[in-house]
Design a binder for these strands. Structure first.
Length: 218
DNA sequence: ACATTAAGTGATT
DNA sequence: AATCACTTAATGT
């Protein structure tokens, strides 16, 4: 009984995301191949150095993907949302160790699929192949954008972009984060973020208070 | 009222 | 832009 209800739950989530891309039969196969896990905000679902036996398919919610430098400080790479899969998981080196960390941003349901399925589906299902290629190029573009802002823009611009991205993602121009959390994501320090915030408020770009930033201009 | 956490400030590298 | 050391302000218990 329990199994059946879990299966239909998973199946429904898959249908919501993929019914226009994959046929019914394949969705059922995906559902059978993976196991569903639920996470709440701030849960780490994959860490640097973890062995990659599974790749994630996000069915609900969103994740943030980060790397770490030698001193253990974090840098936000990009967000993954429902309907995405983590393609850089697939770019494995010999060690099969993850180079990234994935943290849930909110309540999130993820289907973990054994990596060998990837090979199998890539040859067997052309729609899967298209899907992977599409997400691959999408992520690559985002990464190029991230490199661009890192290399050519100052912190002020990076912070504004960060806030806009976040507002866009949540569909709300109020962001509920501390300056320290943002500093972590941007690989900066709390003091620096606080000072730029103050400057942006004077410019009339934002308004903010404790744990809250309101974006005024887009 | 007290402790904890977030944000502000000045000086230094 | 980053870090340190310290202050002030907001919030939780």
């Amino acid at each position: 009984m329990a199994n059946i209800s879990i299966d239909t739950h998973c199946h429904t989530l898959l249908q919501n995301q993929f019914q226009n891309i994959f046929d019914e039969e394949f969705i059922t196969e995906i559902c059978r191949s993976g196991h569903l896990k639920k996470f709440t905000a701030e849960n780490t679902l994959m860490n640097i150095g973890d062995e990659m036996k599974y790749f994630p398919l996000i069915l609900e919610g969103s994740l943030k993907i980060l790397t770490e430098d030698n001193d253990g400080r974090e840098l936000l790479l990009y967000y993954l949302e429902a309907g995405d899969t983590c393609v850089i998981t697939l770019a494995l080196d010999q060690s099969k160790k993850s180079r990234i960390r994935a943290i849930a941003e909110e309540f999130t349901q993820v289907l973990f699929i054994p990596v060998n399925k990837m090979d199998e589906w890539m040859v067997k299902h052309k729609h899967w192949r298209y899907f992977v290629m599409k997400t691959y190029s999408h992520r690559l573009n985002e990464m190029l954008g991230a490199i661009d802002t890192l290399a050519f823009h100052n912190m002020d611009d990076r912070l504004l972009k960060y806030l806009r991205d976040k507002a866009m993602k949540t569909g709300n121009n109020e962001i509920h984060n501390t300056h320290a959390q943002i500093a972590n994501d941007l690989h900066s320090s709390r003091v620096v973020i606080s000072r730029i915030m103050a400057k942006l408020e004077i410019d009339g770009q934002i308004k903010y208070g404790r744990n809250k930033i309101e974006l005024l201009k887009f």
